[in-house]
Design a protein around this nucleic acid. Structure first.
Length: 197
DNA sequence: GCCAACGTTGGC
DNA sequence: GCCAACGTTGGC
């Protein structure tokens, strides 16, 4: 089973937003890059995901998630009111895809980019490559394992999942009041809200 | 805010 | 098909 990394601007859609989503699940819409899309098409249900916060004050891996639905057409592409419409994509001939992910664990301490660069075993990570901008990228098994180890060392808020094949039913914090339907926005500026985790 | 690295666009 | 111009990403 492959592992992945999904990038999101924390000001746009953070791991907290995912935690507060219904069933701690969201669709990952808005990917508008062919290479990223092609990786997304390889994502299978049950595969694990590193949830990465880019931009903002603290670039870091914030936690993990699990793919709960493989790639299917991203309907926001033909919704002119969405944040990332693309007229080339239509219901009959979709161009862009999305997947659904569910929160697995929120790291007690996000693993910062700075820290990652110091871990020798991770030097080949796509994320650490200079100029890397891919918002969906593959992660090696060893890299994923190393990440969990780092998170453990920092006192995770839940024991790391053992098995790889069955994402266990996770217990996440209580759903928040907001009944908003958050649409995952891997990219895009959106509002200018500053934030602090 | 700066700027390097990248992807996309479009003229030729 | 080449490549310059442009827009975007994202760390710093």
């Amino acid at each position: 089973m492959a592992c992945w990394l999904l990038k999101t601007e924390s000001t746009s859609f953070s791991i907290d937003d995912l935690r507060r989503s219904p069933k701690a699940t969201t669709c990952w819409d808005g990917v508008r890059n062919y290479q990223a899309r092609n990786f997304m098409r390889q994502m299978k249900r049950g595969e694990r995901v590193l949830f990465y916060h880019s931009g903002g004050d603290l670039p870091a891996v914030a936690g993990t998630a699990v793919v709960v639905r493989a790639a299917y057409p991203d309907s926001t592409a033909w919704d002119s009111n969405s944040d990332h419409p693309d007229p080339r994509s239509t219901p009959d001939a979709p161009v862009w895809d999305m997947v659904d992910i569910r929160l697995d664990a929120v790291f007690a301490e996000p693993i910062t980019l700075t820290k990652l660069r110091k871990v020798s075993g991770l030097s080949n990570m796509e994320l650490l490559r200079k100029g890397s901008r891919l918002s969906v990228q593959p992660v090696r098994d060893e890299e994923f394992a190393m990440m969990l180890k780092l998170a453990d060392g920092q006192a995770n808020d839940r024991p790391t999942a053992r098995a790889k094949s069955k994402p266990t039913k996770k217990k996440v914090a209580a759903p928040a009041s907001r009944g908003a339907k958050p649409s995952a926005r891997p990219k895009k500026p959106a509002g200018r809200k500053s934030r602090r985790v």
